[in-house]
Design a protein around this nucleic acid. Structure first.
Ligand SMILES: [Zn+2]
Ligand SMILES: [Zn+2]
Ligand SMILES: [Zn+2]
Ligand SMILES: [Zn+2]
Lengths: 156, 156
DNA sequence: AATGGTTATGTTATATTATAACGCTTGTGT
DNA sequence: ACACAAGCGTTATAATATAACATAACCATT
């Protein structure tokens, strides 16, 4: 079931769902989705492209929001699993299903042209790697797969 | 065949081999392994832990070596495949076999304690992921796997 | 060995990404 | 109301990386 995030779609729906899920998840966990945090999450969900921290900072309409404020919100959202950090881009992306990462780690397809990010959940691949890792005596904690390439649109 | 990089071993041998391979590879490719580049490569090979760019800069004995010099050398070494950048650490590691990355991308085990980095070459895993990626219409260019966890030593 | 083009390096400044430290405010439970 | 913890504002600075331009080293050809 691909979520065709890269195709034409009603993105309002993505945002709405994400924000509702986030509210629920925070409720359940007993953590506070404050205004700042909510606003940062909304800004990250402006699309399915990875967003840079300083772009977020600039997009705060008040103009007076400083890096620590935004980075603290980002840290919170990362902790709750509501967003992912794409290390190869120094950028952040909203997670459409914060509850699906226990088994397969983080797996993303990253378009080098437009920075669109799509998640995979290929359980096989990560278990294969985990096995190979264990065989060398390594204790796996957090598997991350970042596949760079070109999304469908950018292959023109 | 694990290369037990994390076990006790004669590291001088690692360095010697790496430098010889680098010289050969550059010879073959008709590119110049200049003094600066050689020195940076040696510094990176001071161990099997990932090394930060600014640590390299400081380790230049002359004291007058500036960031651009080192970053240019790093760029060169990356282009030739002689080192890898570990995105999740903003750090660099020597590649023991620059010719083995066509098929399986970059796959590394990263110890969160000591930053020891060991490469994997699990062809299966990356082909599984590549298949999943292709199925969504994504054109894979550069698969990267960074598995965080604890190396054998640090599991104490 | 001079010439001229290319590649590599030096140098200064600056861009980008992220955190430390400290004090004030807001929320929460008693 | 009070006390404590969590969140946020503010200033400064750390850490990572690149732009731009000048000089030097290399190399092929004359
Ligand atoms: Zn959408
Ligand atoms: Zn996710
Ligand atoms: Zn070694
Ligand atoms: Zn390698």
């Amino acid at each position: 079931m691909t979520e065709h995030a890269h195709h034409q779609h009603n993105h309002n729906h993505c945002v709405k769902t994400a924000m509702e899920n986030a509210a629920l998840l925070c409720e359940e966990k007993g953590v506070r989705l404050t205004d700042t945090r909510k606003r940062v999450l909304e800004l990250i969900w402006q699309g399915h492209e990875a967003v840079k921290a300083y772009d977020l900072i600039q997009q705060f309409s008040d103009g007076g929001t400083k890096p620590p404020t935004v980075y603290r919100a980002l840290d919170f959202l990362l902790e709750q699993g509501l967003i992912h950090r794409i290390d190869s881009l120094n950028a952040f992306i909203g997670c459409p299903h914060p509850d699906h990462h226990d088994e397969c780690g983080l797996q993303v397809l990253v378009c080098d042209e437009c920075h669109l990010v799509e998640e995979l959940h290929t359980h096989d691949a990560v278990s294969t790697i985990a096995d190979a890792a264990s065989a060398t005596g390594f204790k796996v904690v957090r598997p991350v797969v970042e596949v760079h390439g070109l999304c469908e649109k950018c292959q023109a």
